[in-house]
Structures are given as structure tokens and as C-alpha cells.
């Protein structure tokens, strides 16, 4: 497969995952806001802004509604939802012949829906519908991809992009949350803070799954264990890292390359997550552990780039 094509599929998938993540975060925030005092909602808002790496210039804007609008619609902000969907679409457009036409149609539909952006005054009332549409649209795209595209090398880059992005996003969110909110690890959360912890789980689409595993009683240690180490929940760090590792292994076979740097990095992360105890992580500091994950994620990305997408020509000529 051409490197350019692989890279486009990978980035297409990362952008779409990012759009979906941002949509979920803002949606959850705007919903919870209705039930919270201004003070606690502002605190959560600041954490959200931090987790999304919003540029300082924008973050100074205290009007949450307006900022949410910027994060959603602003085309000059490359991480806004609309920008991410546009970038995903542009990437797919360049490799259309490698995807199924149903995939293109779905992503194009989502894009067209988003650029018909509602006027600033009224949009927030309908925002839930809009964020829902982003998530549904992305889920639909994923379903179409899985059922209409051959699960060959190209499909593997799509998987890879999604889970590399997800690992990074969830790690950033969890890190911010645990560094800003202190609560005894093994005590049930109650009172005003409760909604904040629900919010964290919802931001990872994990509230219902958590309740099934632990009941609705929220304890920081359990929330951390679920989001980090659960091997079955598709938004947990462990699940994401395992998917990255599996994808890289498969790509290695398909491209007839020996064990490569990205597989080694993902393998190391995977091993650490499978054998870690949550108590150790809590003792070490969730924030610290997450930063470590994010660093390794960056390394894995760089290695993927270096091996498959933009390798130095002279090394390829030598081999």
C-alpha cells in the first residue's frame, strides 16, 4: 500500500475520533451545567478546556456557551469539531478509491450537515441534537467501514488511527481530572462532586458500563481502574492500547516487516497495563501515570510515521 494512502486513512480516522471526543465532552458539560451551581460548573469547564488543549487565547473566554460554539464551529481553530470533520473528509477524499463509496457518502453527509451551522444565539438550545448527530454520524461511519471495506492493510490503519487518538484523548482527560479533583481514593463520592465524576465517565461514554461493573456508587479508585485497566470496555486505555498493538502486529505481517519500533512501544505499554495494579498507579499518581502513557503514545505515533509513512529514503534504499 502506498505510504500516502496509509497516512491519509490513519489521519482520517484520528480526526474523526477527535471530533467525536470533543462533541461528547462539550455535550456532557452543557447537560451537567443545567444541574450545577455556577462555581462547580466553571471548575469542570476549565478542566475540559485543559483536556482539550484549547489555546490560551481562546480559553480566556469565560463565556462557556460562546467558547463551546468556537470549539464546535470555528474553522480557524484546527481542533474544532467542524475542522476535524472537514480534515477527516479531506483525507478520505484523497484516497477515495481505497474506501467504499458508502463510506465516502456517509462522511460527506456528516460534513455537509455540520457546515450548515446554526446561528450563534439559538444553537445552544439544539446543541444536544447536534452533538448527538456527530456521534451517531461517526458511529455510522465506523459501522459502514467495518462492514463494507475489506479488513486488509488499509482498514488496519483506520483502526490504528482511532485507537491511538482515543488513548491520547482519554489519558489527557483522566490526567486533568485526577490532578484537579482530590477525593479520598476509596471513599464513595457524594454531594456536589458527584456530578463531576459522573461527567468524567460520561465523557468516556463509560457511565452505564461502569454501573454494570461496580454499581452506581462512584469511588475514584474504581473509576480509575475502569477507565485505565478494564480489558473489555472499548474506551478504556487498556482496550485502546491492546487494539493499537494488535493492529501494528497485523500491519507488520502484511508489510512483511520484522518486529518494528512501533510494535515494541505498543507492546511495552500493553504489558505495563496488563500487569499494573490500580493501587500502585494511585500511589504513584494517576496524573503521572497518564502523562507517561501520553508520552509513549507520542513515541508510537512518531515511530509509525517513521516506519510506514515518511521513512528516510536512504534507509529504504539500503535495505
Amino acid at each position: 500500500m502506498l505510504s500516502r494512502v496509509a497516512e491519509s486513512l490513519y489521519w482520517m480516522s484520528r480526526y474523526l475520533e477527535r471530533a467525536q471526543h470533543t462533541a461528547r465532552l462539550i455535550d456532557v458539560d452543557l447537560q451537567l451545567r443545567l444541574d450545577q451551581s455556577l462555581e462547580s460548573s466553571t471548575g469542570r469547564w476549565l478542566r475540559l478546556v485543559e483536556a482539550l488543549h484549547v489555546p490560551a487565547l481562546l480559553a480566556g473566554n469565560v463565556d462557556a456557551t460562546r467558547l463551546a460554539h468556537t470549539l464546535t464551529f470555528n474553522r480557524t481553530n484546527p481542533s474544532s469539531i467542524v475542522s476535524c470533520i472537514a480534515s477527516a473528509r479531506e483525507n478520505l477524499r484523497h484516497v477515495r478509491e481505497q474506501s467504499s463509496s458508502d463510506m465516502w457518502e456517509q462522511l460527506n453527509r456528516l460534513y455537509l450537515q455540520m457546515i450548515a451551522s446554526p446561528a450563534e444565539d439559538e444553537w445552544v438550545l439544539r446543541s444536544h441534537v447536534l452533538f448527538r448527530a456527530v456521534q451517531d454520524g461517526a458511529h455510522l461511519f465506523q459501522g459502514i467501514t467495518d462492514s463494507t471495506m475489506s479488513h486488509g492493510e488499509g482498514w488496519q490503519y483506520i483502526q490504528l488511527g482511532r485507537f491511538v487518538e482515543r488513548t491520547d484523548e482519554v489519558a489527557a482527560l483522566v490526567a486533568t481530572h485526577f490532578s484537579r479533583l482530590s477525593h479520598p481514593a476509596n471513599q464513595p463520592v457524594e454531594g456536589a462532586d458527584y456530578l463531576d465524576w459522573v461527567g468524567l465517565l460520561k465523557c468516556c461514554a463509560a457511565f452505564e458500563a461502569y454501573c454494570k461493573a461496580y454499581s452506581a456508587e462512584l469511588r475514584p479508585i474504581r473509576v480509575a481502574e475502569f477507565l485505565l485497566l478494564n480489558s473489555e470496555f472499548p474506551h478504556s486505555i487498556r482496550f485502546s492500547v491492546e487494539s493499537v498493538h494488535a493492529g501494528l502486529g497485523r500491519i507488520g505481517e502484511l508489510t512483511e516487516r520484522k518486529v518494528t519500533q512501533p510494535v515494541r512501544i505498543a507492546g511495552r505499554m500493553r504489558a505495563a497495563l496488563s500487569f499494573s495494579q490500580i493501587e500502585e498507579i494511585m500511589a504513584e499518581g494517576v496524573h503521572f501515570y497518564m502523562e507517561n502513557i501520553r508520552n509513549q503514545c507520542t513515541q508510537a505515533h512518531a515511530a509509525i510515521q517513521q516506519i510506514y509513512f515518511d521513512y528516510p529514503v536512504e534507509s529504504a534504499l539500503a535495505s
Binding site: 502506498l2 505510504s3 478509491e97 492493510e153 512483511e256 521513512y311 529514503v313 534504499l317
Partner: peptide, 24 residues
Amino acid sequence: IELVEGRDLLVHDNIVYMRTTSGL
């Protein structure tokens, strides 16, 4: 056959190569 753009190709010592994920 492969659909390539100019940036997918390169010439070294008078041989044309395409950049693929499995190498040149």
C-alpha cells in the same frame, strides 16, 4: 494498478520507485 501522485514516486540512480508501507 496503483494510483499514484507525483509525491508517491521518487527517482534514485535512474530507477523510479514508489513509497509504500513495505518500503520502496
